[in-house]
Amino acid sequence: MEIVIIGAGMGGLTTGIALKKFGHKVTIYEQTEKILPIGAAISLWSNGVKCLNYLGLSEKIAKLGGQMNDLAYVDGLTGETMTQFSLQPLIQEVGQRPYPVSRADLQNMLMDEFGREDIHLGKRMLALEQQEQRVKIQFADGSEVETELLIGADGTHSLTRAYVLGEQVQRRYAGYVNWNGLVDISEDLAPAEQWTTYVGEGKRASLMPVADQRFYFFLDVPLPAGLENDRSQYQSQLKQYFKNWCPQVQTLIERLDPQKTNRVEIHDIEPFLQFYKGRVVLVGDAAHSTTPDIGQGGCQAMEDAIYLARALQINTLGVEDALSRYQEKRNERTKEMVLRARKRCDVTHMKDEATTQTWYSELRQEQGPHIMQGIIHNIVGNVLD
């Protein structure tokens, strides 16, 4: 079948790879002139890694992934360890190690695997129209293409979603700003093989190991939306936001490169259950835009990719029947992930001070199993279990 994918992000590329493996002719159209990763890195939990393993990418993703053996929460003000434990029981239970990875490294690997010759850049979709068994797509440069199936992997601002739902839904501001980037691994920031999160005052400073001796870092601060975004002010602002925090966090702020640091106002979208209309279907953030608070955004896009490709392969009552089965399989799980991330976001970022202070107290009593069971609950239930 001829298939067009709009968007060359994680979801679009993984979907394209999966569909090609089943023999489909797939072309990706991306609106940007040059593909740049959105964000410095991504935490690929075991369900996302399993999707890539299923596509034959086990060795490649393992090379890109950081060695994350332990997890710790640290009091950001005092530097006192609140809880610290091995992730090995989690890995044993779910059957796969998680991998924090650089987004640029992951995106380049996926583009090479899909085939760069089938990715067309500078193609911004303006409109789409269904005509019997075909979908007609119009681009801003005046060109048009037709296809048997259109997959919208065009992200949180998805035009494809507006077509499927009949309206452009509004994003919801989650209440905090995230700065993220990469720094060299150094023991004066955190242990090299540990995911370390400094918490306090509804804020976070977190470090995760990725390949090539680097930490992926992010810093979260509850702030109003719409504040000025000036790179030259990043370090001075962060020093103020994290004033009186422990030396490790101060050192991180000193070492980050403002020119290579991303600043993002975090949003999500109210979950909805309609993922397709005719021969147009949604994957990834176009279908279920979520906050990054449980690390499942990219993983859920990869689950979409595998199940959509399999639904088209194993169901023979027609394309729309397969899309209906994909929708029924995916919409409740992804809705749950969006709402679970939203709940975690509110606790972490002190939407209610008493609730967050209770969480801090619980962290000091935590031995590992409760946190790991929460992560496992996110991982299990995917299409490959």
Rank of each mutant, 00 (worst) to 15 (best):
P292V: 07
M372E: 09
C299T: 05
I371T: 12
G284D: 06
M337G: 00
V338Y: 01
I314F: 11
E320L: 07
E320R: 06
R325W: 11
L323M: 11
V338G: 05
L363M: 14
D304G: 11
R340I: 00
M372H: 01
L317S: 14
Y326F: 15
T290H: 01
Y326T: 08
V383H: 08
N382M: 04
H377N: 14
P292A: 10
R330K: 11
A354N: 02
L308Q: 08
N382D: 15
Q373R: 15
R325Y: 13
Y360C: 05
L312D: 01
H370S: 09
G374V: 00
T355C: 02
V319S: 06
Q327S: 14
T291V: 14
L323A: 09
C345Y: 00
Q296R: 05
C345S: 13
K335Q: 13
H349E: 05
R340D: 07
P369D: 09
A311S: 15
W359M: 12
G374F: 06
L308Y: 05
E320S: 09
A309I: 04
Q327E: 15
K343H: 12
R330N: 02
Q367E: 13
I294Y: 03
G297D: 04
E303H: 08
R325P: 08
T356L: 03
R325G: 09
I375R: 01
A322E: 05
A341T: 07
I314S: 11
C345N: 14
H288N: 09
H370L: 09
E332V: 09
A286K: 06
V319T: 15
T290M: 15
I306T: 03
S361M: 01
T348V: 10
G318E: 09
H377R: 12
S324Q: 15
A341Y: 06
N382E: 10
Q327P: 06
I379W: 06
T290Q: 08
M372G: 04
E303V: 13
D293H: 15
V383S: 14
S289F: 13
S324H: 14
I375C: 03
E336K: 13
L317R: 13
L312E: 05
E353A: 14
G374H: 04
K343I: 04
Y307I: 09
P369N: 08
G295T: 07
M372Q: 15
R333K: 12
P369W: 08
E353L: 11
R342H: 10
H377M: 01
T356K: 05
A341I: 02
W359S: 06
Q313G: 00
V383L: 06
T358V: 01
T290F: 01
Q373N: 15
Y326C: 09
T358A: 13
I371F: 11
K329W: 08
A309N: 07
Y360M: 03
A309H: 04
D285P: 06
D321E: 15
Q367F: 02
I376V: 12
I294M: 11
Q357C: 00
I371A: 07
V380G: 02
G298N: 08
H370T: 13
G295Q: 09
E362P: 00
G295H: 10
H349F: 04
E336M: 13
M302C: 07
D346Y: 07
P292Q: 04
D285E: 13
T316P: 01
A305T: 08
L363G: 03
Q367I: 02
K343P: 00
G368T: 02
E328Q: 14
I294A: 02
P369Y: 08
D293Y: 14
A311K: 09
A305W: 10
R364Y: 03
